[in-house]
Amino acid sequence: MTDLLTTPIPLAELQGTAAMPVSFHNLGRRFGTGAGAHTVLRDVSFEVKAGEIVALLGPSGCGKSTLLRAVAGLDAPSSGAVSIDGTAVSGIDPRCAVAFQEPRLLPWKSIAGNVTIGVPAESDAAQRRAVVDKLVGLVGLSKFAEHRPREVSGGMAQRASLARALARNPGVLLLDEPFGALDALTRITMQDLLLDIHAAEPTTVLLVTHDVDEALQLADHIILLGPDGSDNPGATIVRTVEVPGARPRDRASTALAGLRSSLLASLGVAGH
């Protein structure tokens, strides 16, 4: 703590927003109207404590990303509501920051320039530069700060995207399959990086993934989404799992292996 306080930038300015709790109340989302309407999500209710990492796990197309977009305010639910820190989300929410599956960096801006976009508009130029320098360093891209996105690898671009999200000092960090498109080795490195960042700045993290191992490695809680077997259309919460053990977890631990088989079975993939 003391070494953080002796850095040139006051800690408060870098960690302006404290981690925030998120709660979902009977959230539902339908797309289309009339005969073409279909329900993607229904009756989703759960609570995420401040500073927790929660993984949303489910088969593709089950509405995981829709749920995440509802928290960011990029999409409005058809019924129910999301609240962050006790107030309902309506419209794009400045308390959240998103990292998408693709880096979505502006190709004409440098890595540093792209990270700057994440910094809240009200900060002045000096603050901005300090935050960007720090975050670009945190994700190990200092040497590439002035490179264009197309001049760096996919993993580096994804790290820049993560730095851009962190630059917002989010109360809630939303990660939409951020490591899904990376190769296996880079993915593990990125997962470790995320845990390091979370240890240094423990914000609330909602992580969408279809990778059971990733969920087991990163999350405090795993929320499994999917059809619940009833006649009602759309996905809902079919299972909530508390992952045992402190992070970083041993990827080969037997407790996790058992949980992995059981989660895969819930996802409809038996015998692994």
Binding site: L74, P94, C96, A97, F100, L106, I117
Partner: peptide, 11 residues
């Protein structure tokens, strides 16, 4: 996608 990302960051 770029526009959505920028909007998500308050632009």
């Amino acid at each position: 996608n770029l526009v959505e990302a920028a909007r998500a960051f308050g632009l």
